[in-house]
């Protein structure tokens, strides 16, 4: 369970990115966060990853206060969360296989686990035949599927997908969303930020709407109603 308790973030230049945002995300939920650019979606995601500290308020994961994590413990915490970004963020000098195995190496898995799990997730995202290609040899959709494979390979409790379809065409977008849905069905909490109306309407899951750093709407079976 993730709890944001009256979280406010003011950047040094005075910009208010989040204002008294409170929300609770249950395990195995699929939550979409929608809003204009600058509404605070990415800030919310960054705080959950302990990349940013709130100016006031608390963020809990289970009973853990994320802001009280010591610096050297942050990377342990991050291994519980898989991340997928709009710009893919793959390691350019590593093959598809290595990009995924890298994440497993980080969490101290042994070589046997790596050689049995990586082909498995590659199969899940349908990239078995591209295992030894480098990122620059892949299409946008393929890159995003690698990023998802990397995010799920350590079986995290949560996946944060920050605008994962922002750079993709409708067909690839749909593919990525279907994969995320499948992962959610297997029991992983998914937090998806997007401003793609089609995606939200097709999902029919919980939707949190943000505007100017505030949560203005939280619908159980939400639709995209930002642009009234």
């Amino acid at each position: 369970m993730i709890v944001f308790d009256k979280v406010t973030k003011v950047y040094p230049d005075g910009t208010v990115a989040l204002e008294e945002a409170s929300l609770t995300i249950e395990p195995k939920e699929f939550v979409s966060i929608v809003g204009h650019s600058g509404a605070g979606k990415t800030t919310l995601a960054k705080m959950l990853l302990a990349e940013e500290k709130p100016t006031s308020g608390n963020i809990f994961y289970e009973s853990l206060d994320i802001n009280k994590l010591r610096k050297q413990d942050i990377h342990y915490f991050r291994r519980k969360i898989g991340t997928v970004f709009q710009d893919f963020r793959l390691l350019p000098n590593k093959t598809v296989y290595e990009n995924i195995s890298f994440a497993m190496e980080m969490s101290g898995r042994d070589d046997e686990e790596i050689s049995s799990d990586v082909p498995h997730v590659l199969d899940l995202v349908d990239l078995t035949n591209k295992a030894y290609n480098f990122p620059h040899e892949l299409s946008g959709g393929e890159k995003q599927r690698v990023a998802i494979a990397r995010a799920i390979v350590n079986q995290p409790d949560i996946i944060i997908a920050d605008e994962p379809t922002g750079n993709l065409d409708p067909i690839n977008t749909n593919e990525i969303i279907q994969i995320l849905k499948k992962i959610n069905d297997l029991g992983t909490t998914i937090i998806l930020t997007t401003h793609n109306k089609g995606v939200i309407d097709a999902l029919g899951k919980r939707v949190i709407t943000m505007e100017n750093g505030k949560i203005i709407r939280d619908d159980k079976n939400g639709r995209y109603v930002l642009y009234k």
């Binding site: 991050r78 991340t83 963020r89 890298f102 994440a103 990397r150």
Partner: peptide, 8 residues
Amino acid sequence: VMRLVGAS
């Protein structure tokens, strides 16, 4: 990226 993936 390495930091995000949880590398020490």
